[in-house]
Amino acid sequence: MIKRIVIPGEEIKARVKDHVYERNGKFYSKVYGVLIEDKGVGRIVPLKGHYVPRKGDIVIGVIEEIKYGGCLVDINTAESAFLPTEREYEQGDLISAEVDSINEVKEARLTNDRKLFGGALVEVDPVKIPRIIGKNNSMIDMIREKTGTKIVVGRNGRIWIKGEETSKAAEAIDMIVKHTHATGLTETIKNFLEGESR
């Protein structure tokens, strides 16, 4: 496995699905990211990015405005999302919701809303979220288990934590963000979480 940094316009020889564009049969990177290549197949993980809503994503939003038949919710995108709901929310309430549909200008409609009471909110770059979740939720489940906290991870780069050891969980997330591309990260985080709590 080879890892290297690619910049926009750099030719990619490996077969990559996302974050590339094609010109005359050749593929070039669209973004500034890390190419992870193994036996001619690879993927590009952007180093920084923006949240683009996709159907089925779980996001964490802040109620911005109450409208007739629903609310406008800030979900860390340029345009606010609409949440049709009967429930009575107040401006500033924190909710988790699922993206129901996207229109042609990438505005989202939300569904399955749940209000989040108390807790703490951590904001990270949305491109780091898959690493924080881990393969089959392995990383996030480990943090939940070892710190005994409730965690909701939003695809839009917002993470809600509630429980006794909130700060420790937040510190672990911070470590993942700083060392996203390190190998053996799960072990490092495990050791950190199992260490003496200060």
Binding site: I7, P8, H19, Y28, K30, V31, Y32, K48
Partner: peptide
């Protein structure tokens, strides 16, 4: 722009 993670054809 590249550092901001904005997709570009080239620098």
């Amino acid at each position: 722009l590249a550092d901001a993670g904005i997709p570009m054809r080239d620098l």
